[in-house]
């Protein structure tokens, strides 16, 4: 009885672990999809959503008009920069630099949004 249980556990573990090797193509495509372009796109969409948040805050009266415009323009600039990168051929930028760039853009957009906390 115990032996059967032991073998079941061992086999189950091996099966679950080995499964990805039987379905290689699927995982390859997933990994390719995680390319840098998608990352930039996602980042840009995040900035868009932040701008929409700002608009909501303006309409609810949490922000003054000038504050709103100042923050929104910072975010717009960040989005434009990302858009520029998206339209450029991807070969020119190495992975690490892109990381850094995305981080920088994100930082700038955050700078704009953090002022809401004051």
């Amino acid at each position: 009885m115990v032996i059967i249980l032991e073998i079941t556990i061992a086999l189950l573990s091996i099966a679950v672990i080995a499964y990805p090797f039987l379905r290689s193509e699927k995982y390859k495509s997933i990994f390719e999809k995680l390319g840098t372009r998608d990352k930039i796109l996602a980042e840009r969409l995040r900035i868009y959503s932040k701008i929409h948040d700002l608009e909501a805050e303006l309409s609810s009266g949490d922000l003054t008009n000038s504050e709103f415009l100042l923050m929104r323009d910072e975010l717009r600039m960040s989005a434009a920069k990302l858009l520029k990168q998206e339209s450029e051929p991807p070969i020119s930028v190495s992975g690490n630099e892109l990381e850094a760039e995305v981080a920088r853009q994100r930082e700038q957009s955050r700078q704009a949004s953090e002022d809401r906390d004051l």
Binding site: H52, N65, D73, A79, A80, K81, L83
Partner: peptide, 22 residues
């Protein structure tokens, strides 16, 4: 690209913005 962003967001720029831009 900025224009593209504005179209994406549906922003129609008004001129108020000059007052505050530091």
């Amino acid at each position: 690209y900025l224009k593209q962003v504005d179209t994406d967001l549906g922003i129609h720029e008004d001129k108020n913005s000059e007052d505050y831009n530091p």
